[in-house]
C-alpha cells in the first residue's frame, strides 16, 4: 500500500508474510476438509467427483457431504470472524463478541418458536426462522441502544444486547421446558454444526453472507477513523452514525445467516480478530483481510478434528469451545483489559 523506504517498510512486509501464511493454511485445510473424515478419500477421487464424471462410489460422500460442509466452513468462518472484527473495532473492546448484539439469542428464540409453536420440522424452515429472528433482534437492540442519544455510546448497545438476549433466552427456555418435543428438535440445532448435507441450503444463505463480507471489507477504512474517537472521526469527514448503522447491518447479515444455517458457534468471532491484530497490527484493512482468511481455518480445523476424534462426530461448536477457551484464558491473562496490543 505504501511505497516509500520508511521505517514501517519492514512491518508491511511482515504483514504480507502473515497474510500469505494464512492463505496457505486455508488452502491446506480446505483440501483436508474434503479428503478427511470417517472415510478418507484420496485427492484424485475428490477432484474427479468435483470436476470430472464422478463415477467413483465415494463421489456421493464428496458432493453431498463434504463439499457443502467445506463451503459452509469457509463462508461461516469468514462471516463469524469478520463480524467479530467489526464489533471489536466498534466498541473499542478487544474482548467483544458479535453475540452481544443478541444475534444468537434471537436466532435461538425464533427456532424454538418455530419448532414449538408452529411445528416447523424442515431444515429450510429453521433457516428462515433463525435468520428472521436474528434480524429482528439486532434491529430491536439497535433501536433500544440508539434511542434518544445525541452521542453514540457503544456501551449502550452492549447493555441493550445483553438485556434483550437474556429475555429471549428466558422465553426460549420456558418453551422448551413446557414442550419436550420442541426441546428435542432444537437441541441439535443449538449445538452448531457444519454438517448440513445439502448444498442448496448453503447456496440459500450464501448471498447474505457474501453481501455481509463485502460490507465488512468496505467498513475497514471508516472503522480505522472511528477508532480514534468520535470527535476526530467527524472532523476527518466520516459519519459515525452511518458507520454504526452499516456495521450493525453487516454483523446481522454475517452472524444471522451463519447462525441460521450452522447454529450458534462461539469463539471464532472473539478469537480470530484478536490473533489477526497480533499478526498485522492496528489497521482494520489488514485485520479484516487476515481475519477473512484465518477464521475459516479455525472453523475447518475444528470441524475436521470433530470428525476424526469420535466416531459419531463431535459438533464443531463444541470443538471451537475446547480450542477457544484455553486461548481466551491465555489472552485475558496476558492482556491488560484494554490491551489490544497483544
Amino acid at each position: 500500500m505504501r511505497k516509500t523506504p520508511l521505517p514501517t517498510a519492514l512491518p508491511a512486509a511482515n504483514r504480507l508474510a502473515w497474510l500469505v501464511l494464512c492463505l496457505g493454511l486455508l488452502s491446506v485445510l480446505t483440501l483436508l476438509s474434503l479428503t478427511l473424515g470417517a472415510k478418507s478419500i484420496s485427492l484424485a477421487i475428490v477432484a474427479d467427483s468435483l470436476f470430472g464424471p464422478g463415477q467413483h462410489p465415494d463421489a456421493i460422500i464428496i458432493t453431498e457431504g463434504r463439499l457443502p460442509r467445506t463451503l459452509l466452513g469457509l463462508l461461516a468462518g469468514a462471516a463469524l470472524g469478520l463480524s467479530g472484527a467489526i464489533i471489536q473495532a466498534l466498541t473499542r473492546n478487544p474482548l467483544a463478541d458479535p453475540g452481544i448484539l443478541g444475534v444468537n439469542a434471537g436466532a435461538s428464540f425464533a427456532v424454538v418458536l418455530g419448532a414449538g409453536v408452529f411445528g416447523i420440522t424442515s431444515a429450510a424452515g429453521y433457516l428462515a426462522f433463525a435468520f428472521v429472528g436474528a434480524l429482528a433482534t439486532t434491529l430491536l437492540v439497535y433501536l433500544v441502544g440508539a434511542y434518544g442519544t445525541a452521542r453514540l455510546e457503544p456501551m449502550r448497545f452492549v447493555l441493550a444486547g445483553v438485556a434483550i438476549s437474556a429475555v429471549m433466552m428466558g422465553f426460549a427456555s420456558s418453551i422448551t421446558l413446557l414442550n419436550p418435543w420442541a426441546f428435542d428438535r432444537v437441541r441439535f440445532w443449538s449445538a452448531g454444526s457444519l454438517d448440513v448435507r445439502d448444498l442448496d441450503l448453503v447456496l440459500q444463505v450464501a448471498p447474505a453472507l457474501l453481501l455481509g463480507i463485502v460490507i465488512a471489507l468496505l467498513l475497514a477504512r471508516p472503522l480505522n477513523v472511528l477508532g480514534m474517537g468520535e470527535d476526530l472521526a467527524v472532523s476527518l469527514g466520516s459519519r459515525p452514525r452511518l458507520i454504526h448503522a452499516t456495521a450493525v447491518l453487516a454483523i446481522t447479515l454475517l452472524c444471522g445467516a451463519s447462525t441460521a444455517i450452522a447454529g450458534p458457534i462461539g469463539f471464532v468471532g472473539l478469537m480470530i480478530p484478536h490473533i489477526a491484530r497480533w499478526m498485522v497490527g492496528t489497521d482494520q484493512r489488514w485485520i479484516m483481510a487476515c481475519t477473512l482468511l484465518l477464521a475459516p481455518v479455525l472453523l475447518l480445523a475444528s470441524d475436521i478434528i470433530g470428525r476424526l476424534l469420535v466416531p459419531g462426530e463431535l459438533r464443531v461448536s463444541i470443538v471451537t469451545a475446547f480450542v477457544g477457551a484455553p486461548v481466551l484464558i491465555w489472552l485475558a491473562r496476558r492482556a491488560q483489559l484494554s490491551g489490544s496490543r497483544t
Binding site: N224, S238, T282
Partner: peptide, 27 residues
Amino acid sequence: QLGLLPQSATAPDGISVLDLVSRGRYP
C-alpha cells in the same frame, strides 16, 4: 477545509506514529 485537534482523541493501541499521522489523510 476544517480540521480539529480534539481533547478526546484516542490512539489505537500499538499504532505507529507514521500510521497515526497518515490517518489525517482520510478526507
